[in-house]
Nucleic acid binder design. Structure first.
Lengths: 252, 252
DNA sequence: CTCGTCATAATTGTCAGACAATCTGACAAG
DNA sequence: CTTGTCAGATTGTCTGACAATTATGACGAG
């Protein structure tokens, strides 16, 4: 009876975390590599789909997210949509006003400044701990940078470049060795991605900053953490100005 | 019909985090000072009541939070309880295992260490910014310390002392001027309070650290931020050891 | 007597439908 | 021009239900 599901929930080609849990997966055969059981609930999938839509610019900033409309469109019930929306709100991707519903969050200039100030604290703390950090964490910084530069060379999509660029910054926070700080950085990145999604249609250049980051890593490898710290600060300030400029050009 | 509500849900007097941005504010007339309307929803009240129960030690760590039982006990419906529980989980006060329900979180030694490491980053950043901070932020530090010391003198309850003590630490983060960093610090404090609640029945001494904090503030007022920074670091390390010691004494 | 297997109960995840409260906007009344 | 009222829309919350998963306990085999 739950099969009036004409509305497709599956999203674009890059729909990670899918696999609607269809019972007892029959992969009984050998050669278990890294196995993952996507224990995704319906709520998670709805939330992921909404995130994707926001980041891909399908949902403009300020768009109201009506519960009934979404429920009908996604083929799920209203409580499910409601739970997914509270997740989005908690992540800062949407705002809820009592009795007025939830809308896609509008990145204000102040909030962008705040996000950048906060990430300066987090990433700066990571950079300062380069020397004492776990070797595996340093390795993660190197590999995420490598992934970014290779994506740049390969001429990857705007969205992949953004993703990898921001992943590098988060990996800097990982140098602190604190999962909680990394989680905070992830949340900040989500907000940044929201802001960038608003700018995307204005200027989708996503200018190549691979050299900048490589220079930063070189300073770290040389053991000059102070210089790396200062370098990062300037880099973040520039990024903040860039985003705010672009945001100012698209008033609404 | 919705009035079989015999169970009281209203919580303590210190109901912070209320009043979301209330819409289009019609400031057409004069002389409205600071007026606040407690726009609390049922879900918020349930969540607050659960928080209180956890912090007061009524709900031991690991206790399962059954949806139906809570719904019956609080006189609300199961979906309402469910939403409140997701809030608790998001705050780190509880953990949810799919199809197994949510339990009051158990503070592990590792997580306590992580929380302390993270708050060192946040509070340290605030201390370093004492000089450039807003005067109002410095004022907040002074007043929260004053509130703490006066509570100590007055011989306030264990819980109030904890509350004011932690509020002082959060006010240090406020020196950064970043609402997001403060929000992160708040989340960390919530987890600390959970850990402390587990220890509470073992040792409810809550030793008087007012002098320590006063010394820290004096260093700041003297402009010796480096010394204050180092002082804070030692203070946080001591606190971490204290908590972990106490936690180790109460294995389960 | 211990161990594995199976039926049954408990609990969550999700759905459907409903009603009250609140907000929005328009329109009438003063 | 301000205020009161009303219909429509939307959210907040409730009730009831069912499927899927997990825990529990009995039962039989070794």
């Amino acid at each position: 009876m739950y099969e009036k599901n004409g509305a497709r929930v599956t999203s674009g080609p890059d729909n990670l975390r899918s696999v609607p849990q269809n019972g007892p997966m029959s992969e009984t055969v050998g050669s278990f590599g890294t196995l993952h059981l996507e224990h995704s609930s319906t709520v998670d999938r709805v939330a992921q789909e909404l995130r994707r839509a926001v980041f891909d610019g399908e949902l403009e900033s300020g768009t109201p997210l009506r519960e009934v409309a979404l429920a009908a469109s996604l083929g799920v019930s209203r409580p499910t949509v409601r739970e997914a929306l509270t997740i989005l709100v908690a992540e800062g991707l949407a705002t809820r006003e009592p009795n007025r519903g939830v809308h896609v969050a509008t990145p204000e200039v102040d909030s962008v400044r705040d996000v950048c100030a906060a990430r300066w604290v987090l990433e700066g703390a990571g950079v300062l701990r380069w020397a004492e950090a776990d070797e595996s964490q340093r390795g993660r910084v190197r590999s995420t940078l490598e992934a970014y530069t290779s994506a740049v060379r390969r001429g990857a999509s705007y969205q992949e470049l953004n993703e990898r660029h921001l992943a590098f910054h988060v990996s800097l926070v990982g140098l602190t060795g604190s999962p909680r700080l990394v989680a905070m950085a992830d949340n900040l990145v989500v907000e940044l991605k929201l802001a960038l999604a608003q700018v995307e249609r204005i200027r989708r250049n996503a200018h190549d900053e691979a050299d900048n980051h490589t220079a930063l890593l070189l300073l770290l490898e040389d053991g000059d953490t102070a210089a790396a710290h200062a370098f990062l600060r300037q880099h973040l300030i520039d990024a903040e100005d860039d985003i705010i400029d672009a945001l100012g050009l698209s008033p609404n």
